[in-house]
Write a protein that binds this DNA or RNA. Structure first.
Length: 354
DNA sequence: CCTCCCTA
DNA sequence: TAGGGAGGG
């Protein structure tokens, strides 16, 4: 699931956020699939079952998206949700592996349940989660009704989000994965759709999860490398397009090799790289030149409360009281932060300068 | 994940 | 008034 740059990111490249208010006024391009998966994983009863309507359809993703997005807006954050399109051909192997892992997890969950091992079962249930076309469609519908921009990527959502941020239409991307940095996003915010405390595996210790900003320029400067070299290191470690990475190479070796040889191409030609496939160059090219759709400007709309109520209350049995309460907050946030305000940085500069 | 309600 | 716990769909 995404590239693992964790070991390369030193504390000085990260800026921790204590309060969402610190992101007030910022336009943030969310990886929608990433957010939806997190809601599906997190929004569950104590026994592990997700929220469901009376017809047995899962609604955890809608609940999470609805309330969390309103919280962002109330804090002055303007979200954009970017949805994945058709996966690129080079991702096929990873997707196949994921499918197998999920099927296996689903079987393990069933087994654990039948043996009465509920805790273990819910662990596997979370691993087996997948987004259906219906879930994606309804998430888009909900966001559109809320007046939140939905961007349909041609291929990778992370690539599209990075493109939007590079262009200045968003201040940062948001995801748990680091891929958007490889696609050139100037800033990545992590831990924005998860909050609170997370249990350390195996122990009874909880650590508080805070949002963090990673700046691409700062990361490159700290490591003393270029953007292309960061991509090279990621490929050596392993990305969604070469999930296993290069045998025998972890973060440290990858960094040292790039520092010593300068590029993936040169490593491949060196004695160190005789076993490294030339195909990896294709991956580098994809990170440098992903397929994206052009976006000219991004607009927020007035929330359509009737449409939201149709979807959440009538269709999916949300409590009318809770939804109406939230809608009041949504409308207030809309008036306060969006209505009558410029919708892109371009316009902000225009109006801002007078 | 979220809101809501209860308790101190 | 804040903070834990239950329940949301």
């Amino acid at each position: 699931m995404g590239v693992n740059l964790k070991d390369l990111i030193t504390p000085e490249c990260k800026l921790e956020i204590d309060d969402l208010r610190q992101l007030s006024g910022r336009i943030i391009a969310f990886d929608a699939y990433n957010a939806l998966y997190q809601f599906l994983a997190a929004i569950r009863q104590t026994d592990g079952t997700p929220l469901m309507d009376s017809k047995g359809r899962i609604t955890s993703h809608l609940s999470g998206l609805f309330y969390r997005t309103i919280n962002f807006l109330e804090n002055g954050i303007k979200p954009i949700y970017v949805f994945d399109g058709k996966p690129p051909e080079i991702k096929r192997k990873e997707l196949e592996q994921r499918r197998i892992r999920k099927e296996r997890a689903a079987k393990m969950a069933e087994k654990a349940y039948s043996e009465g091992n509920i805790e273990e079962a819910s662990k596997y249930v979370v691993q087996a989660i997948f987004l259906t076309d219906e879930m994606v469609k309804e998430a888009k519908e909900l966001l559109d009704a809320m007046g939140i921009p939905v961007i349909q990527a041609a291929e990778e959502g992370e690539a599209e989000a990075a493109y939007i941020a590079k262009k200045g239409l968003a201040w940062a991307t948001a995801s748990q994965d680091y891929d958007s940095l490889l696609f050139g996003a100037p800033r990545l915010v992590r831990n924005l759709t998860i909050t609170g405390k997370r249990k350390l595996p195996g122990k009874d210790i909880y650590i508080e999860i805070k949002p963090e900003i990673i700046e691409l320029e700062k990361l490159l400067k700290t490591l003393g490398i270029t953007h292309e070299q960061l991509i090279d290191i990621a490929i050596l470690i392993g990305t969604d397009y070469n999930p296993d990475g290069v045998e025998g190479i972890g973060p440290k070796t990858a960094y040292q090799l790039i520092k010593a040889y300068g590029s993936l191409e040169k490593i491949i030609k060196s004695p160190h790289g005789s076993h490294i496939s030339e195909d990896l160059i294709k991956i580098k090219n994809y990170f440098l030149n992903p397929v994206v759709v052009d976006v000219e400007r991004i607009e927020w709309k007035e929330p359509d409360t009737n449409r939201i109520k149709d979807l959440l209350v009538r269709e999916h049995d949300f409590s009318i009281d809770r939804v109406e309460n939230a809608l009041k907050r949504l409308e207030k946030a809309y008036r306060e932060y969006i209505k009558g305000r410029p919708s892109s940085l371009d316009q902000w500069f225009k109006y801002g300068k007078k």
